[in-house]
Design a binder for these strands. Sequence first.
DNA 1: CTCCTATCCTGCGAGC
DNA 2: TGCTCGCAGGATAGGA
Length: 267
Amino acid sequence: MPELPEVETVRRGLEALVLGAVIRRIALHRADLRRPMPLDLESRIVDQPITALRRRAKYLLLDTPAGTILSHLGMTGTWRVAEAERSHDHATLHLADGRRLVYRDPRRFGILDFVAPGAVSPDLADLGPEPLGNDFTPEHLRQVLAARRQAIKAVLLDQTVVSGVGNIYAQEACFRAGIRPQRPANRLRPAERERLVTEVRAVLAEAITAGGSTISDFRQAGGDAGYFQHTFTVYDRAGQSCRTCGGELKGATIAGRSTVWCPTCQR
DNA sequence: CTCCTATCCTGCGAGC
DNA sequence: TGCTCGCAGGATAGGA
């Protein structure tokens, strides 16, 4: 679930809660996530203040003077300032003020890693432009889509094309842009590329304003649910009626992921 | 290169 | 109530 808006929501929540807090020590409970956590993370970050909370694509970065903790939430990852311990808590950051900042990920598709000061993480090296930044433009799409015959929705999921879009927002953006998700990416007309850029940005921005989307277990860092899921137009609505034209929404698998669209509103 | 499939893992809802 | 089955937000390796 955690796509860009959810990660940004968590970032903002953590910023309000723990910016400036001192990490007294880190305890790793289980290191075998999508790839093994570095076991020396515990020794690298000791008595370090959290100087910034950053996001790049779907990655959340906790900066300290001794280095950066890089995290990816995968499908089910969460950061929370913990009340009680829960199953699947994989790492606990014990803060000097007595609070505990916990990384939890039941499905273990996430990542927790250490990045030395000044180093560039390989995880971030090949990411495409931030969709809400200045580099995500119709011209960028034109260049990058030219050689791609794949379905446009599949291409939007490619993090080297544009970073941070996942299965939910790719579908929502296609609907808003009036483009069928299975259209070959290199066949979009200029006006459609322009519209797609506009709508990717808009849907992500609106979702951030709504505190992200809460599906199953996503929570903001303070424990609140997001509420953008109430405004989904197509995601998980196959067989239901289109909110725009009233017609029946269709569903199919594209790029191995479930996909819903409106045959009338999307061409 | 591009593109497709299988895979990692746990939890949950649907259906029986 | 309890079981099995299929599917889920992501990303990558391997092969065609």
